[in-house]
Amino acid sequence: MSYANLLPEDTLVITIAINGYGFLYQRNIASQRRYAQRNHYHYQAVTRPYYSPLGMEVAWLKLHLIRYALLSGYKQVLFVDADAYIQPQCPPLSEAVQDGYSIYAARGYSDRVNSGVLLLLSSPESIAFLDRVISMRDKAIPDSDDVGWGENGHVIHCLKDEPSFFELSNKWNNNSDPGLADYIRHFSAGPLRQRYQFSRPAKALFICLKLANGIRRRLAAHDLNVTVELDKLAQQCLTTYPQLNHTHR
């Protein structure tokens, strides 16, 4: 795909903030929406359902929704974690894209790829990469790649031999350096987490919702099948947010 032929409206910026994280990171989500508006991209914050039994494994959902959006007609998708703030000086995505590459990410504070910011262009290679990572969800990966939960370790593992991958500057996903003139500041588990200021009402609402969700999980009398729950959740999100389909933008 030639980037010269890509129109702004063919771009989707997306975050996932279900299980109450939409309340907790309202300021970040607003910054992401402003970035999309400045560049005339489509933006979608996936904040519902307010409860999923998947807990932290909801992180896998990003791969399913990115894949669907690309297959529906979007030419590029930028995924940004809800705990990431897009700075006013963040340039358009055309400044990140390089000829011959369709998968983009930066290293985090652990010196491994951090999947909290992912940029994928529509290509057979990017779809094949997503399929590969998703298909490996139940498979073990080397300890050197594993992060303990979610999809990040599998992304790290699969990008090691991916020729379509281009490593971005950590300006595009800074979760380690408070003094960096970054584009996206990521308040993930790491050196910057303590620097994020939660509003008291949002934090109180999040805690209440988290407690309620914890009770619901304990009352569930069955073993959780993550793959089945992920498929159900993805379908629910696609029904709730038809804008994830390019034809509904």
Rank of each mutant, 00 (worst) to 15 (best):
D146Q: 09
L121T: 14
Q236K: 08
T15A: 08
P201Q: 06
D83M: 13
T247F: 04
T11R: 10
Y35W: 12
M56D: 14
L230N: 00
E125G: 09
R200C: 04
T239M: 03
Q194S: 15
I18K: 02
V147H: 04
H42E: 08
Q26H: 06
I14A: 08
S72N: 11
A204Q: 13
V228W: 00
Y85H: 15
I103N: 00
R38G: 04
S199P: 00
V80T: 14
R34G: 02
G73W: 05
N114S: 08
F198V: 05
D10R: 09
G150Y: 11
A82L: 11
H42L: 07
Y25C: 03
L211E: 04
K160N: 01
H64P: 00
G153E: 04
L65Y: 01
S199M: 06
K210F: 00
G179C: 13
I29N: 04
R137M: 15
I29D: 03
E57M: 06
D143C: 02
L205V: 08
L168R: 09
N19M: 03
G153S: 05
K232G: 00
Y196A: 12
G190Q: 13
S52Y: 05
H154F: 10
D143L: 09
R249A: 14
P163D: 03
Y109G: 01
P53F: 14
I29C: 06
L78F: 09
P88W: 14
L168Y: 09
A212T: 01
M1W: 09
L119V: 12
I86W: 10
I29Y: 08
R217H: 06
R193H: 13
G148Q: 09
L93C: 10
K203N: 11
A59P: 01
F206M: 08
F198T: 03
Y196R: 12
L78R: 07
D138G: 12
L24W: 00
A140S: 14
A181V: 13
A189S: 14
G20I: 01
A59N: 11
G22I: 06
N28T: 10
A36H: 02
A105N: 04
L24R: 10
P88D: 15
N170A: 02
H64N: 04
S164P: 00
Q44F: 05
G55D: 15
V147T: 08
G150C: 10
T227F: 00
L7W: 01
M56L: 14
L78Q: 07
N173K: 06
V58M: 07
Y41H: 08
I16D: 09
I127L: 15
P53V: 13
D177N: 15
D145Y: 09
D143Y: 02
R216N: 02
N174S: 08
V133I: 15
Q37M: 12
I134H: 07
L65D: 02
R112G: 03
S135H: 14
K75Y: 10
S188W: 11
D10A: 12
A106F: 11
V97R: 09
Q89W: 02
N225K: 00
E151H: 05
N174V: 08
G153V: 06
S31F: 12
T11W: 07
L219A: 06
I16M: 06
G214F: 07
D145W: 03
E125V: 11
G116Q: 07
G108N: 12
N213R: 02
P242R: 04
Q197D: 12
T227G: 01
S52D: 10
A220H: 13
I184S: 09
